[in-house]
Amino acid sequence: MENERENERENERENERENERENERENESKIQKNDIIIEGMDIVRTFRMGEVQVRALRGVSVNIRRGEFVAIMGPSGSGKTTLLNQLGILDTPNSGKVVIDGTDTSTLPEKEKGKFRLHNLGYVFQDYALLPELSAAENVYLSLMMQGKSKAEYESAAAEILTAVGLGDRLAQLPSKMSGGQQQRVSIARALAHSPIILFADEPCANLDSETSKEVLDLFKKFNTEYGQTIVMVTHEEWHAAYTDRVIKLKDGMLEQ
């Protein structure tokens, strides 16, 4: 009897400890999810096209949390790519600011922006934008070389990430010898090789058939769920949105209410 009571008490204590651990994990997750990694404030971007001023973004404010997979959607000319370029500091807004992981990027000089992109951000472009004279592995490890990593480090990192995207057997292949889907996977591997805090993708499936598009989106989802990779993706396909946590909708350069 004494032993049974003792066991019950022990089980209760164990359950309590398990509950505490579960609560801690939930809290951590909440903190993580609520941790704002990109803060875009009142972004205005105007382009001059001949004599005409085109207001591509008219004061857009967005927050993106760490670990989120966000889609930016909207009709053609709504400012999706322009917003992605501002958030990814490929362009500088006329007014407003973009704070990434606590760094106000609007105050950074061009050279520092380059360094910031090199170490913290990854990009996947619509037409893959691979360097045609470099092999798959070389395309992937170029930014790691620039970071000053050793040959052994960058070669193994490139092999690892290319294997993760299913191209472990095509390290030495040139882009011209690859299909569109394979090239886009190399492009994703390049964007992720240096473990960026955010991955930006501008219509990554625009040039791919639906089967290959699904493979690419599955890859994004895998990196998002398994590694907590923050992803901001521009797309105009409704079914792509199903892969994301949230959709930011734009219309005429403003957030759609």
Binding site: K111, K115, F116, L118, Y123
Partner: peptide, 9 residues
């Protein structure tokens, strides 16, 4: 593209 991925000018 090189500039975008952080290769210095």
């Amino acid at each position: 593209v090189q500039k975008a991925i952080g290769i210095e000018q």
